[in-house]
Nucleic acid binder design. Structure first.
Lengths: 143, 143
DNA sequence: TTTGTTGCAAAGGGTTTGCAGGAGA
DNA sequence: TCTCCTGCAAACCCTTTGCAACAAA
């Protein structure tokens, strides 16, 4: 579990991007919230002067390409963006009550993949898994 | 594996819907193709007279509510719709080359879920998994 | 100074809504 | 006949594009 160990902000420079306040802010917003944000939510949280929506879209696209951010389509069919803590294979679990998201390293599928390959005859190359449930705090309240 | 055992067309009547040619056709299109279709692709395949796009959206929404159809967002960020063969828990595997989709009954996660629960502290209640790979035919060509 | 970035405005494109006419039962 | 359903057109809304001004290095 890694609910409270934010990774350092990635180096824009190292990824061949110029450092701009807008990029810094987008990453900070995603960094600080522990749940996915819509583009509009990110925009609302941008400091004074409020950057343009297109800037946010353009940068999210680059951050996703770098593996710093991931997009998830919620049940409400709205696209949201989360900061990826790990660059390795991982999955996100979102709390259905408070929206909090944590990352789980590694893959839950394991031998399940082989069984699905046998069943289907397919050679499985990649997958996208989104998990939903109750975080420890909300689970406690539920009882 | 169940690539070629289409379920009977569901009973519109039993679901409280009137039987209309449009509904029949939408279900038939999804039934016959073994891969997800965009709304436009369904529309192109509608017999003579071509129904309206809104009709397709409205009906897909109802079919999804009935569990007859599932929506999947492809890697190209386009929404597609597939016929669900099973009403039980299942996953779809899509061939990255030919687009064919098959269903795998049951769940590949199994004990992986418990491990993720332990790791995260979350109580996992549901998940959405999309698998990609190569179908037997395309895998053969690949070699 | 050079070139990548931003912001604005407008275009784009998929999806939804309102409403009157039409079809199922 | 009574509703439900469809089709059209328009509205919506999220996302992308073009372009000139701006700022990082």
């Amino acid at each position: 579990m890694r609910p409270s160990d934010p990774p350092p902000l990635p180096s824009l420079r190292a990824a061949g991007m110029r450092h701009t306040p807008q990029r810094q802010h987008i990453l900070e917003v995603l960094q600080q919230g522990d749940h996915p944000f819509t583009v509009e939510e990110i925009w609302e949280r941008m400091p004074k002067g409020r950057s343009g929506i297109p800037t946010i879209y353009r940068n999210l696209e680059r951050f996703i390409a770098e593996g710093w951010v991931e997009s998830v389509l919620g049940e409400d069919q709205v696209m949201r963006f989360v900061r990826c803590h790990s660059r390795h294979h991982h999955h996100h679990i979102q709390c259905e009550r408070c929206g909090k998201v944590v990352e789980v390293d590694g893959c839950a599928l394991g031998s399940g993949l082989e069984s699905m390959e046998r069943q289907s005859g397919f050679k499985i190359t990649r997958h996208k898994l989104m998990l939903f449930g109750l975080c420890p705090i909300c689970a406690e309240k539920e009882r």
